[in-house]
C-alpha cells in the first residue's frame, strides 16, 4: 500500500533530517504565534463593533413649542424611514430625572435651577444593518428636515472612529496575515525544496524504476503537512500559555485584560491552518515532476 509506505518513508526522512525540520517547525510556530497574537486586537474591536448596533441610539431634540399631537406627527414621520427600529419618547421631566440620576454626585450643578432647561426628545434605535457612519449620517440629515426637530445627537465622531478603526485594523490584519502566511508557505517551500534536492538522485532512481508521480510526491506532502501541523500545534500551545499568563494571571493587576476576548475556536484551527500551509508549500516546492 502506498500510503503506509509513504508515511514510513516520510517519518524516516523527518527524523533523518531532524535539525532542518525542527528549525522549520519552530519558524512556522513563531509565525503563526505572531499572526494569532495580532489577531486578538482585531477580534476584540470586531466584537465591540458587533455589539455597537444594539447599544447605539440617536437622540432627537424637539422644539419646546410642540404639543402632544405635533410630537406624534414627528414620531410617525420618523417611523416611515426603514432604518428605524424603535422610538422612545423622553419628556423633558424624564430627561432631567435621568440627568440628575447620572450626576447624583455633582448635585451642585442643579442648584439655582428654577426651570427645566432640557427639551423633550426621542430616543431612536436603528436597525442593525443601518448602523454605519454613512447610513446614520444620511438618516440624520433626513430627520433634521422634519418640522419640530431642532437638533440630532448620535456621537458621530465616536461612531466613525470605531468603524474606521475596525476597517483599518481589519485591512491591516488581512495584509499582515497574508504576508505571514506567504512567509510560512515559503518556509515549508524551502524546507521541502532542500529535502527534494538532497534526494534528487533517489527520486531519479524512483522514476527510472517505474514510480508514479503520486508515489514520489506523497512522502513530501506528508512531510510538509507534518512540519506545518507541528508548527501550528506549537503556536496553539504558545498562544494558550500567553493568554493564560497575560490575560488570566495579570488580569488582577491590569484590569483591562479582564475584558479582552480570546477567539479560542479560531485558535483551535491553528494546527489545521499549519497543515494547509505546509502542504501548499510542499506542492509549490515539488512543482511539476517530469519524467
Amino acid at each position: 500500500m502506498t500510503v503506509p509506505y509513504s508515511l514510513r518513508l516520510s517519518l524516516q526522512r523527518l527524523f533523518g533530517e531532524i535539525w532542518i525540520n525542527l528549525l522549520s517547525i519552530l519558524t512556522i510556530a513563531a509565525g503563526l504565534f505572531i499572526v494569532s497574537l495580532s489577531f486578538i486586537p482585531v477580534y476584540n474591536l470586531d466584537v465591540v463593533a458587533k455589539k455597537l448596533p444594539d447599544k447605539f441610539s440617536m437622540i432627537v431634540y424637539l422644539d419646546n413649542s410642540l404639543n402632544r399631537n405635533d410630537i406624534n406627527q414627528v414620531v410617525n414621520s420618523l417611523k416611515k424611514n426603514k432604518e428605524v427600529n424603535s422610538i422612545r419618547y423622553i419628556s423633558k421631566d424624564e430627561a432631567l430625572k435621568e440627568l440628575k440620576s447620572t450626576l447624583r454626585d455633582s448635585t451642585f450643578i442643579f442648584e439655582g435651577l428654577d426651570e427645566n432647561p432640557l427639551p423633550d426628545s426621542l430616543e431612536i434605535k436603528l436597525r442593525r444593518d443601518a448602523v454605519d457612519p454613512n447610513a446614520v449620517r444620511e438618516f440624520s440629515e433626513k430627520a433634521a428636515r422634519i418640522d419640530g426637530i431642532t437638533e440630532i445627537n448620535y456621537g458621530e465622531k465616536f461612531l466613525s472612529t470605531i468603524y474606521y478603526l475596525k476597517v483599518g485594523l481589519q485591512t491591516l490584519g488581512t495584509i499582515f496575515i497574508i504576508i505571514m502566511s506567504a512567509g510560512i508557505i515559503f518556509v515549508c517551500y524551502s524546507t521541502v525544496k532542500i529535502l527534494f534536492y538532497r534526494r534528487k538522485e533517489e527520486i531519479e532512481t524512483f522514476k527510472l524504476l517505474g514510480a508514479s508521480k503520486g508515489f514520489i510526491r506523497t512522502p513530501f506532502l506528508i512531510e510538509g503537512a507534518f512540519i506545518g501541523g507541528s508548527g501550528g500545534t506549537l503556536s496553539l500551545i504558545g498562544i494558550y500559555l500567553f493568554s493564560y499568563i497575560v490575560f488570566f494571571r495579570l488580569a488582577d493587576k491590569v484590569p483591562i485584560f479582564k475584558s479582552v476576548a480570546i477567539p479560542e475556536n479560531l485558535f483551535l484551527s491553528l494546527p489545521l491552518v499549519g497543515i494547509l500551509l505546509g502542504i501548499t508549500g510542499a506542492v509549490i516546492a515539488l512543482g511539476r515532476l517530469k519524467y
Binding site: G16, E201, E202, E204, T205, K207, L208, L209, G210, A211, S212, K213, K290, Y291
Partner: peptide, 24 residues
Amino acid sequence: KESSIPLLRRNVGIVFQDFRLLNN
C-alpha cells in the same frame, strides 16, 4: 503520455551502469 511512462518502465528491468543503489 507522460503519465504512462511509469507503466512502460514497470515492464522493463534495468541494470544500470552506475548501479543506482540507495545507500540509505
